[in-house]
Write a protein that binds this DNA or RNA. Structure first.
Lengths: 191, 191
DNA sequence: GGGATAAAACCGTCCAGCTGGTAGGTTTTT
DNA sequence: AAAAACCTACCAGCTGGACGGTTTTATCCC
């Protein structure tokens, strides 16, 4: 859902409107992939869902592959900025990013639709996972080499984070709230 | 790769040959999904890859969805039997299944193609993740309630296992061998 | 045993429907 | 006036699957 509030900055300009359209396309695509599966992610449906024509869509994304790549990078950037925000939010001198990594999973537990379709789309259709790999590389490096904590604990935090993320993503026998809580506590105690 | 050794039991019968064909279809489908992405998993290609006609394929799997479901359950059953074998292999009186869970990830690290496409296919196309959820539920229950170890440690083993599995699956900045090794040691020390 | 019969395993052809993408317009903003 | 943001046909190609064959295997009966 795109914000339908009044303009505030350089809004109302052509470029700004275009950007909003682009966003709504991305959101529509994400929505469809998430709710109906990547197999049903067609240009026509995305366009319809975004309230524009297919031609209009193709004006913004020259091909389906471009759309998928756009979707992937959008999600990654979003996650990265969330992580940075979370890392800044806690005032740890060590383990700030590890803490953020866990917080991210914790908070995105039920909002995780963001990545649901996207990730899979990029992984399986014709997309290219390179940007995702690059991003995970950065996170990994930041955890292990720049977070001022024990390397092994950093690794643990990351793997647990990824595991929970996967579990939540596909709803694969997710742990109870209590179990999840204790799991977080256990790891955070070691940061 | 289906065993091409000599007959041993009721082999050579019609039913046995049919079963072999079925298997080769499943293997072909898995191969394609893994190497070329689920988006390229078409009946024609699977048939060609399996060396039969599309009509023949549809004799074994009435629809594409049936094929995908077959692929999913096949993989799950395979994993389940591997887990059981691994659990029997170690002679722990407690934590046998948790140990097996970790061993599974460890050993399937580079053979993981088995699940690569399958899982995603079921998750995203038109498939139904229910069988996967059921299986993970069983594993989860067995870990937490029947493995005679601390519940929280069981949970930890599972989440770490799933995390590594995801990381290996998509090759997302996988940890080094040494890191991986220490991670396993850390958890196994607590079983 | 061996023909008759049926069922299972498989093949080749055809087609309606959808998909991504093109080409050429129109409107809107700069 | 020109560029950007859109839209409306339109189409070639592929896809799943239906359909009616044909061949192979199993079963029955004599």
């Amino acid at each position: 859902m795109v914000s339908k509030t009044m303009p505030d900055k350089p809004l109302g300009t052509q470029a700004a409107k275009s950007e909003r359209t682009r966003q709504s396309i991305l959101e529509s695509a994400n929505e469809i992939a998430q709710n109906e599966g990547v197999g049903n992610l067609t240009l026509a449906r995305v366009a319809a869902n975004a309230g524009i024509s297919k031609g209009g869509l193709l004006h913004h994304f020259g091909s389906k592959q471009e759309l998928i790549i756009g979707l992937l990078t959008e999600t990654l950037d979003q996650a990265d900025s969330d992580l940075n925000r979370l890392a800044d939010a806690n005032d740890r001198t060590s383990g700030a990013f590890a803490q953020a990594y866990l917080d991210f999973v914790r908070t995105s537990q039920h909002t995780n639709g963001t990545a649901t379709g996207v990730f899979a789309a990029a992984a399986l259709e014709d997309g290219d996972l390179t940007p995702a790999r690059a991003m995970f590389d950065r996170w990994q490096h930041r955890l292990v080499a720049e977070d001022n904590i024990d390397q092994d604990i950093a690794m643990l935090a990351r793997v647990v984070g990824d595991g929970l993320w996967l579990i939540d993503l596909f709803d694969l026998a997710p742990p109870s709230e209590a179990q999840r809580q204790r799991l977080f506590e256990f790891i955070e105690a070691q940061l």
